[in-house]
C-alpha cells in the first residue's frame, strides 16, 4: 500500500489553479522529492495531504486514510516552510508541547526530546527561548519536531532552507539514516544537487502539473558523452580520433580536456585503445550523465513560464531582439 497516493488532485484558489490534476504515488521506505519552480504548487500539495487546505477535486490518501483525517496525522511528521514557532517557548518546551499533542508518553518525551535535539545539533541550546534562535537553528528545531513521535511518514517542505553547508550535509545523512530505519520521507526542495543525492524518486511539478516523474537514475540517464584528459604535455590526437568516426571537441571551460560524443552503436573502447596503444597516458575518463539540474532546467525551459520573473525576461529578450533588428 502506498504511503501517499493522489489521483487527479486539483486545487483552485479563487480563479488560480494551483494544482491541475496531480497523480503521484509514494511507496513505503522511499525518499521522494518534489521539485518545481516557485509557485508550482508543491506546498499546496503537502497542505492538502495534511488537511491544512481543502482539495477542490480528485483524491488524496495518506497511509491509507483520506487526506485530512485527524488520526492519521498522528503518524506523520511535518516541517512546514516559513514556520513561525511560538516565540514564548524554548526548544525543549516546544517539543514537549508538540509531543503531548501527538500523544507521546511523558517518559518517552523525557528521553526522546534531548535525543532528537541532539540529532539536529541544537541540544546545547534547548533551554533557550526560541526567539533567541538563529534561522538555521529554528530550521533544525523544525526537523526535530517532525521526528519526535517516530512517524511513519515525514514530510519536509524545504528542510535545508537557511541551514549552513555543514548542516545540510548532516541533514542529508539524517534522512538517509531515517530511511534505513524504515521511515518514508517526502520532501520539497529547490536544491537539486541535494535532491539528487538523497532521493530515490522525484517528480517535477510545473504550474500545477507533474511533467516528469521517475527514479533519479531514470531521469539522469547517460548522455553518450565522455570527457577525456591526457597526461601533462601530451597532445590529444584529435585528427586520428575523428578519422575513427567519433565526434571530438576540446572543452573550452577546461583546457586540455576533450569531449567525445558517441554516435549510436559506438562505444568508447576503440578510442581508449587507440590512445593507450599510441603511448599516451590517460588521466581522466568520465562518462557524462545529465545532472538533475540539467533535467530540471530542460523541463522547465520547455514548459510555460512559472512566475512573473520569467515572463519579464522573455519580454526583455524580445525587446533586445527588436532593437537589434533580428526580430
Amino acid at each position: 500500500m502506498a504511503v501517499i497516493e493522489t489521483r487527479d488532485l486539483r486545487k483552485t484558489y479563487g480563479t488560480l489553479e494551483a494544482l491541475k490534476g496531480v497523480s503521484i504515488s509514494v511507496e513505503p521506505g522511499q525518499i521522494y522529492g518534489l521539485l518545481g519552480q516557485n509557485g508550482a504548487g508543491k506546498t499546496t500539495l503537502i497542505k492538502i495531504l495534511l488537511g491544512i487546505v481543502r482539495k477542490t477535486a480528485g483524491e488524496a490518501e495518506l497511509l491509507g486514510a483520506p487526506a485530512g483525517t485527524v488520526n492519521v496525522r498522528r503518524r506523520v511528521g511535518y516541517l512546514p516552510e516559513d514556520h513561525q514557532f511560538p516565540y514564548y517557548h524554548t526548544g525543549r518546551s516546544l517539543m514537549d508541547f508538540y509531543g503531548q499533542l501527538y500523544g507521546v508518553s511523558p517518559d518517552d518525551r523525557k528521553r526522546k526530546i534531548p535525543e532528537a535535539l541532539e540529532l539536529v545539533g541544537i541540544a546545547g541550546r534547548m533551554n533557550s527561548k526560541i526567539k533567541t534562535y538563529s534561522k538555521g537553528m529554528k530550521q533544525r528545531l523544525g526537523i526535530a519536531q517532525a521526528l519526535l513521535h517516530d512517524p511513519d511518514l515525514i514530510i519536509l517542505d524545504e528542510p535545508t532552507d537557511g541551514v549552513d553547508p555543514m548542516g545540510r550535509k548532516e541533514i542529508r545523512e539524517l534522512m538517509a539514516r531515517l530511511k534505513d530505519k524504515g521511515h518514508t520521507i517526502f520532501l520539497n526542495s529547490h536544491l537539486l544537487g541535494e535532491v539528487e543525492l538523497v532521493c530515490d524518486r522525484v517528480a517535477i511539478l510545473q504550474r500545477g502539473e507533474v511533467v516528469r516523474e521517475g527514479t533519479v537514475a531514470e531521469l539522469t540517464k547517460a548522455t553518450d558523452k565522455f570527457r577525456l584528459r591526457l597526461g601533462e604535455g601530451q597532445a590529444f590526437p584529435t585528427d586520428v580520433v575523428a578519422r575513427l568516426g567519433y565526434a571530438v571537441a576540446p572543452l573550452a571551460e577546461r583546457p586540455g580536456t576533450f569531449e567525445v560524443t558517441l554516435a549510436s552503436g559506438q562505444t568508447i573502447d576503440p578510442v581508449v585503445r587507440l590512445l593507450v596503444e599510441g603511448g599516451l597516458s590517460l588521466r581522466e575518463l568520465v562518462e557524462k550523465k545529465e545532472s538533475l539540474e540539467d533535467v530540471f532546467m530542460k523541463t522547465v525551459e520547455g514548459a510555460e513560464p512559472g512566475v512573473d520573473q520569467k515572463v519579464r525576461t522573455v519580454q526583455q529578450v524580445q525587446r533586445v531582439r527588436a532593437v537589434g533588428g533580428e526580430g
Binding site: 497542505k47 498522528r74 514556520h83
Partner: peptide
C-alpha cells in the same frame, strides 16, 4: 497568534 501564517500550519498538522 495561533492563526498567524507560519504558526497555523504547525498546529493544524497535529492530530487534533
Amino acid at each position: 497568534n495561533m492563526m498567524r501564517k507560519g504558526s497555523i500550519d504547525l498546529m493544524l498538522s497535529k492530530p487534533i
